[in-house]
């Protein structure tokens, strides 16, 4: 064996297995062996479908499952889809935005308490945050249906307090849908918030206090900015799934509270693939654009 790196000596003791006198092979290819199966899976069943979705969105809208679909570059599908379904689009984004804001407002104190105040209860509290989510998403949402039902205690209390009219209801309203979204995606807010709060060196907050910050100022000037990565991650992890959700709107709302997810689902159900695809692509593009702008504004590119 000769060395390719200018060390031609062959030590007799070391030569037999050829290891010592020649440079080890650089097995860069092994990275590809490790990567390839999973990467191919994602290309085949995530990227390709996305391309196919875009293609489908440009099919002749008059096609059907029986007659097949023809590629006619029908950009009009987008115009039609937005024309017909602008309202669920706007509604869906609005509901998701409200739910995300609510998650942030109620999730932040919880994450803060776990990170800084829980002491030896920290692990238990973390388990408790996740535990409810071992119960099926749908089963939980059905439980909310019961909680918010017309003769349930929440409506009863709300009526007593005069928050809703005597014949008013919560179920099948936007309120119920937003409540469902908020509840279902809360852990996605709490966990990233907790992670980034946990990382904060507590001495920084003490230093702020030492430098004449009131607790409120210390929070606003030190804790909150340092927890921004968690806020960004949490809001994205909450907003994205809720913007595409249709379960809450279906189980807790009615026809007037439909979100864009409901429309996409029902369009696919009836075989109106081009319209459904056009709506999906629009939703995806909007979300990707919002995520990109949001991440850039928040200055937390390392999130990726």
């Amino acid at each position: 064996m000769t060395s390719s790196a200018g060390a031609p000596s062959v030590a007799p003791e070391l030569a037999p297995d050829g290891d010592a006198s020649s440079p080890p092979r650089r097995r860069r290819s092994s990275a590809w062996f490790l990567l390839l199966p999973g990467a191919l899976w994602l290309v085949a069943f995530f990227l390709t479908p996305m391309v196919q979705l875009v293609a489908t969105s440009l099919y002749d809208p008059s096609g059907s499952e029986e007659t097949g679909y023809a590629m006619t570059w029908a950009w009009g599908n987008y115009v039609d889809a937005l024309d017909f379904y602008l309202e669920p689009f706007v509604r869906g984004f609005a509901y998701s935005a409200i739910a995300t804001a609510l998650c942030l407002v109620i999730g932040y104190p919880l994450a803060y308490a776990i990170a800084f105040k829980a002491g030896r209860w920290k692990n238990l509290m973390l388990v408790l945050v996740i535990a409810p989510f071992f119960t099926s998403f749908l089963v939980r949402t059905l439980a909310w249906k019961l909680i918010l039902s017309d003769n349930g205690f929440v409506v009863g209390i709300a009526k007593t307090l005069g928050l809703i009219a005597d014949d008013g209801r919560l179920l099948a309203t936007g309120f119920a849908v937003v409540a469902g979204l908020t509840y279902n995606f809360l852990p996605f807010m709490v966990l990233p918030l907790y992670v980034s709060l946990e990382k904060i060196d507590h001495r920084l907050i003490e230093a702020a206090g030492d430098l004449y910050s009131s607790p409120a100022q210390g929070f606003r000037k030190v804790t909150l900015p340092l927890s921004m990565p968690g806020v960004v991650a949490g809001t994205l992890l909450t907003f994205i799934p809720s913007a595409g959700d249709f379960i809450n709107a279906q189980l807790l709302g009615d026809t007037t509270t439909q979100m864009i997810g409901n429309v996409i689902e029902s369009r696919f159900e009836v075989g109106d693939y081009p319209a459904a695809a056009a709506l999906s692509v629009t939703l995806m593009v909007l979300i990707v654009a919002m995520v990109a702008i949001y991440i850039r504004r928040a200055g937390t590119e390392e999130l990726l």
């Binding site: 995530f46 479908p49 996305m50 196919q52 979705l53 994205l236 994205i240 799934p241 913007a243 595409g244 959700d245 249709f246 997810g261 996409i264 689902e265 696919f268 459904a276 695809a277 999906s280 692509v281 939703l283 995806m284 979300i287 990707v288 995520v291």
Partner: peptide, 10 residues
Amino acid sequence: ASPEVVMGAS
């Protein structure tokens, strides 16, 4: 980062 509905649909 993709809504499930888009992944399912695609």
